[in-house]
Amino acid sequence: MTGHAPARGVTDSFPSVAAFVAAERPESPVHLLRPRRLEALARDFVAGFPGDTLYAVKCNAHPLVLWTMHRAGIRHFDVASPMEIARVVECVPDGTMFYHHPAKTPGQIRLAWECGVRFFAVDCVPELEKVAALTDATMRPVVRLAIPKGSGAVYDLSTKFGAVPDVFEATLRRAAQMGLKPAVTFHVGSQCLDPAAFRLGIEMACASLDRTGIAIDWMDVGGGFPAYYRLTQAPPLSAYFEVIAQAHHELTAPRGIRLACEPGRALMAEGGSLLVRINLRKPDAVYLNDGIFGGLTETYWGKDQLSLPFRLLDAQGRLKNGPAGSFAAFGPTCDGNDKLPWPLDLPQDAAEGDYIEFNLIGAYGREMAARYNGMHSDRVAVIDADFAGHQAEEIV
């Protein structure tokens, strides 16, 4: 955090989770951020992707995350709300923002414009005309193309936003008629398991450009790059970069188009984990101080596709191993559905007062947490060591 004030809600840094648990034994859930790991991931992405990397702020808007992305060389930010715009202005004032929500209110558009946003996503002529009426000729409409369902993603993101080719092309034509300089974007869906989906998007966009005769200089291939959960069946990120680089070489570079992407999960997942406490142990179940209405919300939607790595620590921070049993895991609320979608294989001596650290929560864990039953924790701690199993294993 060199050169910045301490991030809101962050405790002092600790060398390891073991040291944090031993020192504090927290009774509330704690989101653990690993800026060293996050910076390494971001630098790898900046070096590997054949174009510009935007960070999708929606997956984790914590100030420390934005500062770390900036330190790693990221200068472009995908924002989708006034809060995210304000956070980028506050934390990385030299950043370039792309307002990639295609359904905005007039007040949101005015605020974004006043804050320096010049790139606005649209997926239809009415949205284009609304944004244009509230800005000026320097506004860059980023026209969003819908990708066909079944492109290999866990979450399909084209059922809500994105234009089918006819509407996409009509919106491009209208932008050109208005004297604006359009750009193009698409999104293959979150946690995409098939690199070929990115080539499909580039091919579809280029086919539409050919039909309209409109030249562009910027194409954002969206996010969707995967994180690697316990059961994830996906090739390495390098395979995605290779597919995109080849498509760029064949299709977009000859047209003078620069590529961009807007990863969130792939950049952020390994950069954070969630530390929860076992509040009650029963013979075949554990009751945790966080669950699907809190930092584990996304597991409810992702099920086995988002099966999280985890480990058990005792109240002194020591790793617990031994013969395992299968435990149902319940969250703290009064709702009977507050239960993880998969059992936890924990050591049989798991006990009240032990801690479970769930990894790959850096993306969406904090941002999706609700305040149901008043059971919510914003607490964040900084951990220097990586989660065990990654490049520099933590010693406990």
Rank of each mutant, 00 (worst) to 15 (best):
Y228S: 05
H187A: 11
P283A: 11
V131S: 13
L319R: 10
P283E: 12
I257A: 08
L209I: 08
D156P: 09
P15V: 02
E270P: 02
L267T: 04
T11Y: 06
F225V: 11
R87I: 02
R34T: 13
T252R: 06
P263C: 05
D94P: 13
T53P: 00
I147N: 08
T159Q: 14
P309L: 03
I395D: 14
E129L: 14
R174H: 02
H187Y: 00
V88E: 06
V65C: 09
Q233N: 12
L134F: 12
D354E: 03
D335S: 12
L128D: 00
P254T: 04
G322V: 14
Y364R: 13
V122A: 13
C206N: 05
L346E: 05
F198T: 03
D220H: 05
R366P: 11
S326M: 13
A42N: 12
T96N: 08
P235G: 11
G3M: 06
D166G: 03
T232R: 08
V89W: 01
F14D: 07
A197N: 13
L296F: 02
D194W: 04
L340C: 07
A234G: 08
A285L: 10
C192M: 09
L145W: 01
A370S: 14
T212A: 05
A133G: 14
F186K: 03
E84L: 07
H100N: 12
V46E: 01
W218N: 07
E242H: 13
A183I: 04
G362H: 07
G294A: 08
V88Q: 08
W342E: 15
L280D: 09
V89H: 11
G353L: 06
F161M: 09
S81C: 08
A163Y: 04
A392E: 06
R110S: 13
E262R: 14
P341N: 04
L66F: 07
I74T: 09
N279D: 13
G272T: 08
